[in-house]
Design a protein around this nucleic acid. Structure first.
Length: 236
DNA sequence: GCGACAG
DNA sequence: ATCTTGTCGC
């Protein structure tokens, strides 16, 4: 199913307003729940594609069976871009469309796997945490590139990891999902433990570096964007 | 002050 | 994120 989403009422218009929202919501992140067990129930991948030229955004949510990684359900949402890209404020750009796709699902999402960071964020409230707090769902962030926290060497074998430390607090982990291939960066979003988040990511990467959830969502949102973009007339 | 900077 | 040719490798 594909829906059309608007920008929520009161959505921040500028950076100052966005920072205030992060300040107001960051205390609502729940870190003392283990979260769903890997390999059971469903896991949902989220991703977003843009056509900045036209100000159009497309989001996808793909629900997988956690045990088989088969697709259970897919949903997309298209709309207008709600915020410019600003490092540290990615959530304000992605979340409106993502909410539209999630709301279009009939299946229970289970753990939501986001493209980006959760707690390993300059103000400890990245996209995954923000989405988790707004939806109440357990979320995890899986980023492809380092952001604010450095880490030590990661062993060459699959499953090896290095901590992302904010002082003594481990806010994320660089995790090798394929031997000899660059690691991904896992961080807790909401209502999940870092250990459990990493176990999920390993269960979602039997073959490729990137979790099957986000690979599927990536393809789907790109296709959705092309559908909207095809035959576009200059004017709207 | 100067760069770096998830997607 | 997106743009975008060739090139190396399974």
């Amino acid at each position: 199913m594909r829906t059309i989403t608007g920008i929520p009422e009161g959505w921040p218009e500028d950076e100052a307003a966005a920072l205030a929202v992060q300040d107001a919501l960051r205390g609502r992140v729940v870190r003392d729940e283990t979260g769903p067990a890997p390999g059971t129930g469903t896991v949902t991948g989220i991703d977003v594609a843009y056509d900045d030229e036209r100000g159009v955004v497309a989001a996808a949510a793909v629900v997988l069976d956690a045990a088989t990684l088969d697709v259970v359900e897919e949903a997309t949402a298209v709309g207008r871009v709600a915020f410019p890209y600003v490092p540290g404020l990615l959530a304000f750009r992605e979340i409106p469309a993502v909410l539209g796709a999630l709301e279009a699902l009939d299946a229970a999402p289970g753990l939501v796997v986001c493209d980006g960071y959760g707690l390993a964020h300059p103000r400890r409230f990245g996209l995954a945490s923000h989405l988790g707090v707004l939806t109440g769902l357990p979320t995890v962030g899986v980023a492809k590139k380092p952001f604010v926290f450095a880490h030590g060497e990661v062993g060459p074998e699959r499953g090896a990891a290095a901590a992302l430390l904010d002082g003594a607090d481990e806010v994320g982990r660089a995790l090798r999902t394929r031997a000899g291939v660059k690691p991904v960066y896992v961080s807790v979003g909401h209502r999940v433990t870092l250990d459990n988040a990493c176990a999920h990511v390993l269960a979602l990467t039997p073959q490729f570096r990137i979790p099957e959830t986000t690979r599927r969502a990536d393809r789907l949102c790109r296709d959705a964007l092309l559908d909207v973009t095809a035959g576009w007339r200059p004017g709207t």
